[in-house]
Design a binder for these strands. Structure first.
Lengths: 253, 253
DNA sequence: CCTGAGAAGTGGTCTATGCCACTTTCTACC
DNA sequence: GGTAGAAAGTGGCATAGACCACTTCTCAGG
């Protein structure tokens, strides 16, 4: 499999170099200049620049130029397309399984899933990382009765709801709550933040087409790395509606 | 701000029509066909399609075609009030004005409102209560230049955006971020919670139809009394919902 | 000295076109 | 009948060029 060296990627890498070596706010060469320097056409340049603008590394200003963004670490906002999961920010997500078992639900989880505390559930605890850095702790619970043959591999899969569908469970809706909290000792050490650091507590209860509770997720997200951003528009529609607009564009300084 | 009818937007709207009228998984016309139908060039088509792919409404498959995405995840924020305000929980809301002045913006607020730090703003700090019990602290900033004759009464009014409209300011959109934090000494005493208690920090930057920043709001909500609840449904159309997304930020304001 | 008009440079949009890579379908050969 | 291969249709990448909109700077004219 030879390297399919795309010009667009070559340009992007070149720009990333520039971004790293230039201070925030510094201008990068004009698009027409880059064309000559890299021997590619302007649309190709624009495509590469656009990608970096979307990820927040560059800021374009009409008539002035293109500049290195103020906060270089800002990542792109991603709308999760297929699977109904927690909102995921840009970067490379990975996860490490901390614990995995088939255990009784217990009182708290049992109440949420409308189960007897003695009923078995599939349980998995994961540390979720972005670019190798801890981002969140996630505790997933699925009643054993709902999907008896669920495997660890199923629960680790990126498209978990697809796997559930293969087990005959058709997810239909979920109620999610978000509240602020602070991390305790064990959470702090797993996430690599100080004890009592601010964090977001997500809870999600998912229901299938037959009205059964099929999943309860409890997550702790690092407050210093995670933030919820929403864009509200007042338009023709009667409510505060917004069509999926992915980006909150680059913050001019 | 006149309509600068961009072809790209025309194509996008046309595609949105198709997406709404076609079932999930249905193919949309080939790019070269769309070119003829809409009398635009293929790069323009591709640009519009790309936007919708990024927002998760379409799926492209090399060699096969472009299809309406299978399931869109939408997240509806429970917000009872019609106007574009912070989500408000049940109960009787009231507020107590803590401070009110016309002062220079200062560096932090100035940067968000795109003003010189020396530019005047209307400033009001309020303690918001629910059923007589403190719920949140709210700090509202409006550039004096935008609405020179704004009064305290205007800013205290329930329908603040309606008052702004009477001053010739037509609010059009806002970007809001939510992150976890803990309260400091003064916040703690005002809210009646212990120091370091978990809280939610809301920030909202509002823009008017002319693209001016017209309002910056900074609020601290008690974590023990306030929680965001959202209902996620699978397969619904994104209309009349608020899509919440997230981003990683290394430089929180 | 100040001011305003224009030049020059920037990003923003769009066109017309070519070729490549992948998938599906149909056909011709065995 | 089965199968390999060509053909057709799709999206993926890239080019060269044109014109527009906005910003900044310069310089002539007051």
């Amino acid at each position: 499999m030879a390297e399919a060296i795309l010009k667009r990627e070559r340009v992007r890498d070149y720009l990333l170099e520039l971004i790293e070596t230039h201070p925030a706010g510094a201008p990068i060469p004009a698009e027409r200049v880059l064309c000559q320097q890299l021997s590619v056409s302007r649309p190709t340049i624009r495509s590469a620049v656009e990608e970096l603008v979307n990820t927040g590394l560059l800021v374009r200003q009409h008539g002035r130029g293109t500049f290195v963004a103020r906060a270089k670490i800002t990542q792109e906002m991603v709308s999760d397309t297929g699977s109904m999961s927690l909102p995921q920010a840009g970067g490379t997500w990975s996860s490490r399984v901390l614990e995995h078992a088939r255990i009784p639900a217990g009182a708290r989880v049992g109440r949420r899933l409308h189960l007897s505390p003695a009923a078995d559930i599939h349980y998995i605890a994961r540390l979720r990382l972005v670019d190798g850095e801890p981002m969140a702790l996630e505790y997933l619970h699925v009643p054993a009765q709902v999907a008896p043959s669920l495997t660890l591999h199923d629960m680790e899969s990126g498209d978990f709801y697809e796997r559930l569908r293969e087990h005959g469970v058709h997810v239909s809706e979920a109620v999610q709550s978000i509240e602020p909290t602070v991390v305790n000792d064990s959470e702090a050490s797993l996430l690599g933040v100080p004890v009592l650091a601010p964090a977001l507590l997500f809870e999600r209860l998912t229901t299938d087409a037959e009205g059964r509770q099929v999943e309860y997720v409890h997550s702790i997200y690092r407050g210093d790395r995670y933030r919820i951003v929403s864009r509200l528009t007042l338009g023709a529609s009667p409510r505060n509606t917004v069509d999926v607009q992915a980006r909150v564009s680059g913050d001019p300084f």
